[in-house]
């Protein structure tokens, strides 16, 4: 009983399971909340590519889309990595 008491005195707050579970919950919810329907994501990709390809010529093999969360600043971002072959110079812009 006494050892238990001393362990408790020495134990820091963050070792208690409440803080642990809250951290886990927040990170799992961040993932859950950004779960987008894959059809919608695909549609969005196509539309973004359509717009971008008006102005630049794209390399279709080197296109990456990802949705990422930053737990520290609590934001969700869409990261698009698009390689450009060359820039199309439009006369009528």
């Amino acid at each position: 009983m006494f050892t238990k008491f001393f362990i408790k005195l020495l134990k820091k707050d963050y070792e208690e399971s409440r803080y642990n579970v809250k951290k886990r919950l927040k990170s799992i919810l961040a993932h859950d909340r950004l779960a987008i329907n894959s059809n919608i994501l695909e549609k969005m990709h196509m539309e973004i590519l359509n717009v971008v390809s008006k102005y630049v010529e794209l390399d279709p093999k080197k296109i990456e889309f990802s949705v990422e969360t930053d737990n520290k600043i609590k934001t969700i971002s869409l990261i698009a990595n698009i390689s450009i072959k060359r820039i199309i110079y439009l006369d009528k812009v």
Partner: peptide, 8 residues
């Protein structure tokens, strides 16, 4: 909860 072993 008081023992910080459950979410409040």
């Amino acid at each position: 909860i008081r023992q910080n072993e459950m979410m409040s």
